[in-house]
Lab assay of single mutants.
Amino acid sequence: EIHIRTNGEEQARKVYKMLAKRNYDVKIEQHNGQWVVTAS
């Protein structure tokens, strides 16, 4: 499982799309105001 911390919604969405293209199961979560993308 991969966790990627991003500094904002826009970046989180870019990372989300990139990983989704590679057939990862991707989730975006917010932790303490930080956007974290989780891929498995």
Rank of each mutant, 00 (worst) to 15 (best):
S40L: 09
I4Q: 02
A39K: 04
Y24D: 03
H31W: 13
E1Y: 15
N23D: 06
K14D: 05
G8R: 13
Q34F: 15
L19S: 00
E1H: 15
A20Y: 07
N23T: 04
Q34S: 08
G8Y: 13
N23Y: 15
T6Q: 03
K27S: 07
N7G: 07
E10Y: 10
N7D: 10
D25G: 06
E1N: 10
T6D: 02
R5I: 14
V15L: 14
I4E: 02
R13P: 00
A20Q: 13
D25T: 14
K27Q: 07
Y24M: 09
V15I: 15
R5P: 05
A20I: 13
V15W: 15
I2T: 04
V15G: 00
Q30R: 10
A20W: 07
K17M: 13
D25H: 13
T38V: 14
V36R: 05
E1R: 14
V36P: 00
H3I: 15
W35G: 00
T38W: 09
R22G: 05
V26Q: 00
Y24W: 12
A12R: 01
Y16D: 00
A12W: 03
G33R: 04
K27E: 04
E29N: 08
E10I: 10
K21I: 10
N23M: 10
N7Q: 10
H3R: 14
I2Y: 08
K17Y: 11
L19M: 06
Q34T: 11
A20N: 05
V15S: 02
A12G: 02
D25P: 05
Q11K: 06
E9K: 09
T6W: 04
L19P: 00
Y16L: 07
R22H: 10
E1W: 15
V26T: 03
K17V: 11
L19D: 00
R13G: 03
E10P: 06
G33H: 07
E10V: 10
I4Y: 13
Q30Y: 14
A12H: 01
N7K: 09
A12C: 15
I4V: 07
Q11D: 08
G33K: 05
Q11E: 12
K21G: 10
T6P: 03
A12K: 01
T6S: 05
S40D: 04
W35L: 01
D25F: 13
Q30S: 08
D25E: 11
N32T: 04
Q30N: 12
V15Q: 02
V36A: 04
G8I: 13
Y24E: 03
N23C: 15
Y16I: 04
Q11F: 12
E9Y: 15
Q30E: 10
I28G: 00
E10L: 11
R5L: 12
G8K: 12
E10D: 09
V26R: 02
N23G: 15
I2S: 02
Y24V: 06
I28K: 01
L19T: 00
N7S: 11
Q34L: 10
I2N: 02
A39R: 04
Q11Y: 11
V26S: 02
A12E: 00
N32R: 06
H3E: 11
E1K: 14
D25K: 14
T6N: 03
S40I: 12
I28F: 03
E29F: 15
K21P: 01
V26N: 00
R5G: 03
V26I: 05
M18H: 07
N32S: 06
K27D: 03
T38R: 09
E9S: 05
R22D: 05
N7A: 11
D25W: 10
I4H: 03
N23S: 07
H31D: 09
E1A: 12
Y24F: 11
Q30F: 14
Q30T: 07
H31T: 09
T6A: 09
M18S: 06
E9L: 15
T38M: 08
W35T: 01
V15E: 02
Y24L: 09
A39F: 14
R13N: 06
Q30I: 12
R13Y: 10
I4M: 04
V37G: 00
H31Q: 11
D25L: 13
T6V: 15
K27M: 06
N23W: 14
Y24Q: 04
S40W: 13
K21W: 08
Q11L: 10
A12N: 00
V37F: 02
N23R: 08
K27T: 08
L19K: 01
E9N: 03
E9M: 09
V15M: 08
R5C: 15
A39D: 02
N32V: 04
I2R: 04
M18G: 04
A12V: 01
R13E: 05
A39W: 13
V26H: 01
G33M: 04
I2M: 06
W35H: 01
K14M: 10
E9H: 07
E29L: 09
Q11R: 07
V36Q: 05
E9G: 04
S40M: 10
I4S: 02
E29Y: 15
A20V: 13
A39Y: 14
W35Q: 00
A12S: 03
N23E: 05
S40G: 06
V26D: 00
E9V: 09
R22I: 06
G8T: 15
G33Q: 04
D25R: 13
E29R: 08
H3C: 15
T38A: 04
H3Q: 12
K27V: 07
Y16P: 00
V26P: 05
N32P: 02
H31I: 15
Q11N: 06
N32K: 07
N7Y: 11
N7L: 10
E1S: 12
L19I: 02
M18D: 05
A12I: 02
Q11T: 08
S40H: 09
K17E: 14
E9R: 09
I28Q: 01
G8E: 12
E9A: 07
E9W: 14
I2F: 13
V36S: 06
Y24R: 06
K14W: 14
R22W: 14
Y24K: 06
Y16H: 05
V26K: 01
I4L: 05
I28L: 07
I4A: 02
K21T: 08
K27L: 05
R22L: 15
E9P: 11
K14A: 10
K21M: 13
T38L: 09
K21R: 11
R13S: 04
A39T: 07
T38P: 00
M18T: 05
H3P: 02
R13V: 06
Q34G: 08
V26W: 02
V37L: 04
V26A: 05
V37P: 00
M18Y: 14
E29G: 07
W35Y: 04
Q34V: 14
N23A: 08
D25N: 14
R5A: 07
H31Y: 12
I28W: 02
N23F: 15
Q34Y: 15
I2E: 02
D25I: 14
N7I: 09
M18V: 07
T38F: 09
K21Y: 08
A12M: 03
L19Y: 06
W35R: 00
E9F: 14
G8D: 15
R22P: 01
A20S: 09
K17I: 12
I4W: 08
S40N: 08
T6E: 03
T6G: 03
E10K: 13
A39E: 02
N23L: 09
E1P: 11
R13M: 09
G33D: 06
G8S: 15
Q30D: 05
A39L: 14
A20H: 06
W35P: 00
Q34C: 13
N7W: 12
T6M: 11
I28C: 14
G33I: 02
N7E: 09
K27P: 00
W35I: 01
K21F: 09
K21S: 12
M18E: 08
Y16E: 04
W35D: 00
V37I: 09
Q11W: 12
V15T: 03
Q34K: 08
Y16W: 06
K17W: 13
H31K: 12
V37K: 01
K27Y: 07
G33L: 04
H3K: 14
S40Q: 08
H3T: 15
Q11I: 10
K17L: 12
M18P: 01
G33N: 06
S40P: 05
H31A: 08
S40Y: 11
E29I: 11
E10F: 09
E9I: 14
Y16M: 13
K14N: 06
V37D: 00
K27F: 06
I28E: 00
H3S: 12
Y24I: 06
Y16A: 15
K17R: 12
V36E: 04
E29A: 10
